[in-house]
C-alpha cells in the first residue's frame, strides 16, 4: 500500500499488515507518521503526536 507523507509529500510504501496505531518513518524527510485509519485498503497517516507525560512502560 502507498500513502503520501503529509510533511514532504513523498510517496511512501506501507507494509500490507500495518495496523492502526503503527508509526512509520518517512524515508524521505524522517517525519514520524502515525497510521490512524485503514479503510478499504486505503491507509491514512498523520504526523505522530509527541511523547505525552504519562507515556511509558
Amino acid at each position: 500500500m502507498k500513502v503520501e507523507c503529509p510533511e514532504c509529500l513523498a510517496e511512501i510504501e506501507v507494509p500490507d499488515d500495518v495496523i492502526v496505531g503503527e508509526v512509520i518513518e518517512c524515508p524521505e524527510c524522517g517525519a514520524e507518521l502515525e497510521v490512524y485509519e485503514i479503510k478499504e485498503g486505503q491507509v491514512k497517516v498523520r504526523v505522530a503526536a509527541a511523547e505525552e507525560e504519562d507515556w511509558g512502560e
Binding site: E51, E53, D54, W55, G56, E57
Partner: peptide, 9 residues
C-alpha cells in the same frame, strides 16, 4: 523523581 512516568523523564 516524578511519581508517574517512564524512560527517565
Amino acid at each position: 523523581k516524578p511519581i508517574h512516568g517512564s524512560w527517565g523523564r
